[in-house]
Amino acid sequence: MSATADRAAQFHRFHHDGVLLLANGWDAGSARLIESLGAKALATTSAGVAWAQGYADGDRLPAQRLIDVAAGIARAIRIPLSVDVEGGYSDDPAQVADTVAALIDIGAVGINLEDGGAGPERLCAKIERVKTAAARLGVPLYLNARTDVYLRGLAAEGERVEATLARAARYREAGADGLFVPGLTAEHEVRAIAAGCDLPLNLLACPALPPAAELQGWGVRRLSAGSDLAQSAYARLADLAGGFLGDGDSRPLQARAMDYGRLNALFDFA
């Protein structure tokens, strides 16, 4: 079995042992730092990756730019890498599969693939083509199917559990390995979906959610930071840069800075 296939199998196992916590990175530097803090795996945030490359989030990033960023991350870390590919940057399932195959070639072992505002048929077709491509490459890719039933309000309140489970069943049949439901927070709904979807359930970090130990009891198996880390980093940068540009005061720049030597050592690969 190849090293990539080994890491893919490891990534699958992580979803069946407690709650997998994913602090999402957006470039090689953030990924390497997150790995150094004890992360078991690294997932990207599509928003953070897009912003760092000068693009808006929402399938606006050229697929080749995503592949290049992922290649840089794969070079910098030794833990399993999962890449958020949004809707696949194409409506053509074959093209989506080609993009994912390129990501597998650089070492990715998981992806997020979302339905957005579309019906489930399109995502099912993409899942099937992607899983076929992964099998051809000999890698048990972990495909986390994201449904935006809650995030985009694709069903009326009171009908969202049923709508999510209906989509989950179709995505599971198409080959999905996990279910990601951003915007889902209510305990009774989380428990119902976790029990009924027959897939490891992934939630998006939110102040309304309890800590991971309690979420595990609800049936959750993965919790993602999403774009929050990138947004917080940009907020800190805006505060510091804005202040410096305003008055030229050097003191705040070092007040909470990481040590140069510690940072540089993270990237001193043998």
Rank of each mutant, 00 (worst) to 15 (best):
A94K: 15
A28V: 04
D91F: 12
D68H: 09
Y234G: 14
F269E: 14
L209T: 02
I193T: 05
P252R: 07
A76D: 06
R146I: 09
A74Q: 11
A174P: 05
G18H: 03
V181I: 01
W26D: 03
A233K: 13
G29E: 11
R170K: 05
L263I: 15
R136V: 11
L21W: 01
E187I: 10
A241G: 12
L123T: 02
D105R: 12
D198S: 13
A145K: 06
K126T: 07
T147D: 03
G261K: 08
G48K: 11
G175H: 09
E114S: 05
T45Q: 07
A9F: 03
G116P: 08
L33P: 07
K131L: 05
P207F: 03
R251W: 04
A166M: 07
L184H: 00
Q231K: 15
G119D: 10
V161C: 04
D92A: 13
G110F: 01
G242V: 10
R167P: 08
R167W: 05
L103K: 05
Q231M: 14
V220D: 00
V130D: 09
P252N: 09
N202R: 01
L237K: 11
I77S: 01
L22T: 11
A97F: 03
W26V: 12
S30Y: 00
A225Y: 07
I111N: 02
D249C: 07
A169Q: 13
R170N: 02
R236D: 15
L154A: 05
G158L: 11
G138Y: 01
L245Q: 10
R172T: 07
D239C: 07
L22H: 03
E173A: 15
G248T: 02
A195C: 09
L179I: 06
N202G: 00
T147V: 08
F11C: 07
D98L: 13
